[in-house]
Nucleic acid binder design. Structure first.
Lengths: 335, 335
DNA sequence: GCAAGCGGTTCACAGACACCA
DNA sequence: TTGGTGTCTGTGAACCGCTTG
């Protein structure tokens, strides 16, 4: 592998000059530049990003920490982040948070070490306080995706989880349902907590109209919710006339279990969920669900990241809310 | 951020000694080691991976290039790779191939620059020859996943695409179907090409029994195949009595379009696909499909990568074939 | 423990040349 | 002619943080 030394020797100039033509900085005579470029091409020279990062204290890259590779929309997030990074001519560095707080923290640190210009944090397990503390302890800015954090922790762009549940449940109530159930993961992550809270708030808000709410705990995942639903049913519990599911995969697994017990969706029970997964229009029945605009969210996060790097401006936190996509899994309740 | 200099100054030893305690190399007196460790902890010192990689010419990491973030199983691959890397105490570096050959190439190079010990290549667009050439042009080994390449290009672990189609179609033939159709992407990638070829081979093989085959082109994706199927039907073409779909999402989109035309699956047309996506048991009807053991494949790839790094042994290429998972989308053809 | 790297960046500065008083 | 002033280009060397003989 050719180094800058090989190049400057072959071109008969100094390292500094070569460095300038690489980076397009300073002044270099046209003829010199061309000569150096010719030599670089001939030697098939590629500057070492490692050395560049070490010397300049910047890797011209943006770091992305993902907490988990399962579940609905991390794929869209990854893809969009990658595309945006490509467009802004920056490298994208990933780090895996392994779905636990400690690893999320060290993922961030590993990216800091690598001299990213900024970090996009898609955290599932870190608390707000931890994120604030983390942001303080490092020198590069953090953009938090999917979570609302105080502005002192930098920019955050999030999705209003509680509101999504309310919107989903509200739709059910509008349809005349009063005995609602929520099926979703136990409140051990911020997202799960917010969604569950949203449900409780909704029920409380409409309690005077006779709305009641039950909760069935189920992890994310098709099979998981299928089994959870089955167990729930077998234990003698029932769902009322309508269910709001914390995610599309939960809804889908749940519906299958329901059907196996002879309960028809939407005729017997209506179901609304959250995510708008690509497959949700294609299951039986097509899911009425809340769309999470993860692509737009990611795109916006990357845009802000860019501005943050270039101009250092931190916009106010932004909260997206999802649209209700009405399909066929929820219908009017006939008393 | 504390550097090694701060540490050695504070501990009253030389940089070399600090470096030794970091890496556990050479001999360091116990008391010295403890002192240095104490100082490191107190200063919250973290060695710069950049500087380490540059100086030692190895980042103790393994590189993963992914060609695309869409489609069935890249999520499982990512996750398993990440877990395996974690287990072997190595960093995992991702690079995105943006689903085109040129970017896949430069993704590999960017990882080489970063001094990965080895590269796992999950390529969709590179030709065999390109991979061989690439392997020759760089100094670190490549493990190719999902594609069978000559051994001179290093280890490869792949999935027998053509065989999967034959197995799927074979199942249909066993069920008494003779008029088969294939729905899948045009042969512009190696995977798509192999699957289509497999279909043609199968038809040819059973031609003497009166088996015929038609082809309907459709990109990957639920919506894409839904639309392709609709267009195909509207143009007056028909599918025969059974379909093998190149992927679960294609099958699912196709089935929906079929149903909308009043064609029932499996009563009127049987469908078999490939992938065994997590959602495939949960759609209507549950999909009979070929399981692609992407998790095992990735795990094995990482295992070999480890051996390759440690002992330099290159095993023979391995080819996995998938199991047929019989569910409900394909039934006996009643003449 | 010393010192020479790893492969770059960067800044202070020098040589060359033109221009003008 | 001389010297003073600038503007371009390019050089040398220190330095980034760590490894290793």
């Amino acid at each position: 592998m050719a180094t800058i030394n090989d190049v400057c020797r072959a071109a008969g100039v100094s390292k500094a000059t070569v460095s300038r033509v690489i980076n397009g900085t300073g002044q270099v005579k046209q003829s010199t530049r061309e000569k150096v470029e010719a030599v670089m091409a001939q030697l098939n020279y590629r500057p070492s990003s490692l050395a560049q990062a070490l010397a300049s204290q910047s890797a011209n890259s943006i770091g992305l920490v993902i907490s988990d590779f399962t579940g609905g929309y991390f794929g869209s997030l990854l893809k969009q982040a990658s595309v945006s990074a490509e467009q802004m001519g920056k490298q994208l560095l990933f780090a895996d948070g392994h779905n636990n707080a400690e690893d999320e923290l060290s993922a961030v640190h590993s990216l800091v070490e690598k001299k990213c210009d900024i970090i996009i944090l898609y955290s599932r397990k870190l608390s707000c306080e931890q994120i604030v503390a983390l942001s303080r302890s490092i020198t590069i800015p953090i953009v938090t995706v999917g979570r609302l954090v105080p502005q002192e922790a930098g920019f955050s762009i999030s999705f209003d989880q509680a509101n999504a549940v309310k919107k989903a449940g509200g739709h059910l109530i509008e349809l005349g349902h009063k005995q609602l159930s929520y099926i979703g993961p136990k409140p051990s992550t911020p997202t799960a907590t917010l969604r569950l809270q949203g449900f409780h708030q909704l029920v409380e808000q409409y309690a005077h109209q006779g709305v009641t709410g039950k909760v069935c705990l189920s992890p994310f995942g098709f099979m998981e919710s299928y089994q959870a639903t089955k167990a729930y049913l077998e234990s003698g519990d029932c769902f009322g006339t309508a269910i709001v599911a914390a995610a599309d995969d939960i809804a889908i697994g749940c519906i299958k279990a329901l059907r196996e017990q002879g309960i028809k969706v939407p005729q017997d029970i209506s179901v609304v969920s959250i995510d708008n997964d690509p497959c949700s229009p294609f299951v039986e029945p097509p899911l009425t669900t809340i769309d999470i605009p993860i692509k737009s969210i990611t795109e916006r996060a990357m845009e802000v990241a860019k501005q943050l790097i270039e101009k250092g401006i931190i916009p106010k936190p932004e909260v997206y809310s999802g649209d209700l996509i009405i399909r066929e899994s929820a219908i009017k309740h006939l008393p």
